[in-house]
Design a protein around this nucleic acid. Structure first.
Lengths: 156, 156
DNA sequence: GGTTGATCTAGAGCCGAGTCTAGTTCCTAG
DNA sequence: CTAGGAACTAGACTCGGCTCTAGATCAACC
């Protein structure tokens, strides 16, 4: 029934997850683990595959901007066991909203960025042609900046 | 030819942009303005609409994760005037890549988050039915956590 | 002339999320 | 027995990006 579970050192877990050993200890201090990290002889941390699985979830939640306190809250709920699924659901939904909102903001920003890339592509293309005809570009220094700034603010 | 340009106090700019007056002074110290902020009588900052336009761009770039040093670099290039469009283009393209990568990561994370929301929705639905039949849910405490963790790691 | 309230400067403080250090202990190999 | 490398703890440090404070100045109104 109880399989031989692979047990991993902190170094191995670090390698596998991409977290630093420092970060792993830090996460532990912060109470982000669902199961207390076991200790081997000499007081060394022994991690299970489950720990790595959980860390994988943590990493994804962190990567999507969940702050440590929320992550700790979530770990607390899971540690507590069945019966608090409503709250876990709330927490996850809230995070879901955050992430979609963030994607929305980034996507909006991308409009401006794309626009700017376009502007500079055009300018560079023009420049590479007119540069071999005349050292001064076709627009004066005064003209150069203002129209750019004028358009810059127009995001939509 | 030269229109009467509206000039704004730091407070007005703060209100308009959503940045704090502190942040505005901080941005100035950091060299993020393209045009030196003018000073009125008594040494008070006087902003133009152009400044606000530029700040709007800054805010969008910041919101999309551009770090202050990059933003400063960009401001430097624009301040320098025409002739460095290739570098501006590089900078913007680089940022474009960062933002799309970030959107990608977030979208991926969303898979897990959506999955979890689904799991907890199901559990809550089940629970609200069986809860009025039996205080203990249909799965034992031991069973409860492990399958969740097992699935948790499966992102794809 | 006195009181608000906005602004000024220089610099200190804060928060989140780790990272790094010092000094020690432990395991393994030669 | 010794050297090397990995791990241990507690706590200091870093970094980015502001935010806040103190103490002074200034403009406007009663």
């Amino acid at each position: 029934m109880s399989e031989i579970r692979t047990s991993l050192s902190i170094g191995q877990v670090a390698e596998r997850t991409g977290l630093s050993v420092h970060a792993l200890r830090f996460y532990e201090r912060e109470g982000l683990f669902v199961n207390d990290v076991r200790r081997g002889p000499g007081g060394r941390r022994v991690y299970s595959e489950d720990d790595v699985d959980w860390l994988t979830v943590c990493i994804i939640l962190r990567a999507s901007g969940m702050p440590l306190p929320a992550l700790r809250r979530y770990a607390d709920l899971v540690r507590e066991g069945a019966g608090n699924e409503e709250e876990r659901l709330r927490l996850m939904r809230e995070h879901y909203e955050h992430v979609t909102a963030q994607i929305g903001r980034l996507t909006q920003s991308l409009d401006l960025i794309r626009f700017k890339v376009g502007v500079y592509e055009d300018l560079v293309d023009q420049g590479s042609v007119s540069a071999r005809q005349c050292h001064a570009p076709s627009l004066s220094a005064g003209e150069e900046r203002t129209p750019l700034l004028r358009h810059e603010a127009v995001v939509e």
